[in-house]
Nucleic acid binder design. Sequence first.
DNA 1: TGCCCGGGTGTTTTT
DNA 2: CACCCGGGCA
Length: 761
Amino acid sequence: MDYLKELNEPQHQAVSTVEGPVMIIAGAGSGKTRVLTYRIAYLIQHGVDPFNILSLTFTNKAAKEMKERIGKVVGSSEARNLWMGTFHSVFARILRVEAEKIGYPQNFTIYDTDDAKSLLKTIINEMGLDDKIYKPNQVYNRISSAKNSLVNAQGYLKHPEISTDDQLAGRPKMGQIYEKYSMRCFKSGAMDFDDLLLKTYELFKRYPDVLYKYQQRFRFILVDEFQDTNWAQYSIIRQLAAMYQNICVVGDDAQSIYAFRGANIQNILNFEKDYPDLRTFKLEQNYRSTQNIVNAANSIIARNKQQLPKKVWTSNAQGNRLKLYKALTDNEEGNYVAQNIFEERMNHQRANNEFAILYRTNAQSRALEEALRRMNIPYKIYGGVSFYQRKEIKDLLAYFRLVINLNDEEALKRIINYPARGIGKTTLDRLVVTASENEISVWTAMENLKDLQVGLGAGTIKKVEEFMLMIRSIRSQLNSKNAYELGSFIATHSGLLRELYNDKTPEGVSRYENIQELLNGMKEFTDKAETPEESLLPKFMEDIALLTDADNDDEDDRNKVSLMTIHSAKGLEFPYVFIVGLEENLFPSQLSVNSREELEEERRLFYVALTRAMEQVSLSYAQTRYRWGNLIQSEPSRFIAELDPEFLDVKYSHNTGHSGMGAQMGGGFDDSPRTRAANYSIPGHSPLKKLNTAKTATPSFSGDPVSSFQPGMEVMHARFGKGKIIAIDGNDMNKMATIQFEGEGEKKLLLKFAKLKIVGN
DNA sequence: TGCCCGGGTGTTTTT
DNA sequence: CACCCGGGCA
């Protein structure tokens, strides 16, 4: 019980108050993980069977780490029986056990976002709807948020407000699409991510005996990152906790950043109403960050209206001020960051993995990557296209999926003609339509080809049958071969491996290697299995269905700089944190600036970013940045102005030192009062202090921003040479300039493409 | 049926 | 800029 001594008073309370509903409001860096870990250990040491504890975390990785930590306190054999995982993975597990009650096969497929969108697209086309109006992306989001609010297709169709909304939005058929989509998933034996929640809720609602079973089982429930749960998740927790009321939720309303995914900050604010006996503990002492960081973060979050009162403080050292750097371009921002990491690493003996670069959108990673690569700094990007989303991996997995679940329509569509076996689009379309009309799966339709009069030629029918024969013959080995053996067999016998092997382009080679890597992973999986049953392919698929990149960690990634979105940085900490791209319309996002609520979410996101740092925060923004291929001008983020200047150290990029370039680069951008950040005058810090970094790398002939050109200016063009702008017409990004070139005559050029440099007025 | 080209389009954020 | 899709052609 020694560990209790390591806790401060509120932490101690939070750990040892184990009966009844408990809410722990855990400020950033306040030792939340430690409290959760010890609370579970405490439960076990007070005689609670680990078997009766359910702990829901945000990522599988968090679950795994916590399990290890608990194992160290109470012994790993005790810890083994704990149920820990994400909502999605825990409920998927329950659903597999109970699947037949709701008419699903035990081996149901989990459709990822791509599968779901592809199916929606098929349905929209089948219904003869315009996919410019019914964009699969938007339809998917609409259905997703319905499911997250526990509205199923029937409920959706009956709901008057929803139909009015859809009518007004010009998408009256939304409900019918939802209905068809649900039906198709059902016939395919497939659930999407949101179904894992919705169906669990419905299962418990419909079968009180099943609910009772799990209520008995999960007598103690803990929920981490409670601020990011949505209505469906919350409702399921409430169902499960209804009997014993031993529910402990841990969260921080200031760090709620998933409203876009249906997360409801109200869950936290309303928890008290649902559980009148609730005991609330607040963890307010921050052990992670310096005073400057904590106070700067506080000054930001104080601007939000919607929040629970709390005061996060620290007794750590004051630390350095936050650095703020104004870069000319996104590339230069990258150089600044890379250069800075390089220097800090040298001067203070720091390791690569002590640095993180955080951004708002994945697309921003490119400029940073290039800069890091130039300086030979090893880095790892989290998020983006995950390994399991790569085409070749999805292809092979589609074979696995189809073999396990013959009704899996999306898997079948993917591979029936890959590698090419003469079953083309027309044939496939006919099969899919026939299946849809008869409300059967595509595979079932293929099994009944002759009766259904699909109208295929004899040759085509033969090819379809050969394909079915191949799938069946693989399927017959499902229980005799382990995942690795069967996986290799499929890779070879499907022709997929050969197809990739024959492709000698660099991409082809890399695809081939990826397949090998997947197979290696499967080897590892089978080697690790304790029983033959555990080593089978379906088990492997269950394991990886809900994995994300964040859940893998390679040993060779151990000492690298981390690049990730702020969202994926949640729960992590780093000594040095760079927050880049602090520009209006990027962070905060353009889509959020018009509503107070969304803006507050962006602000919380900034708060999360700041509080990841232990020692040093470096903020930066660029005045011009490439976006959708265009060079655009940016204003500094309002969040910079919201930071109390006493915590800031400002640096400006300027290159008056580079003679000859002044006119087009340095001089072109003034520190005008228009830019909010420049409103600060910080005593003792010259805003023009020369940076020892980034030699403003190559401007890479990117040209000056479109908006800076005026008639009468002299400009330089890479091919036509020097010329004078006679006129500019058109607007925005489509501005066209008429230019009289010396020697080349008059030309009309689109400014966004011309890459002109201003050489004089 | 399959490949190549051109145009249109799109970005938050993720289980 | 990058990707996806559709249309045209071999």
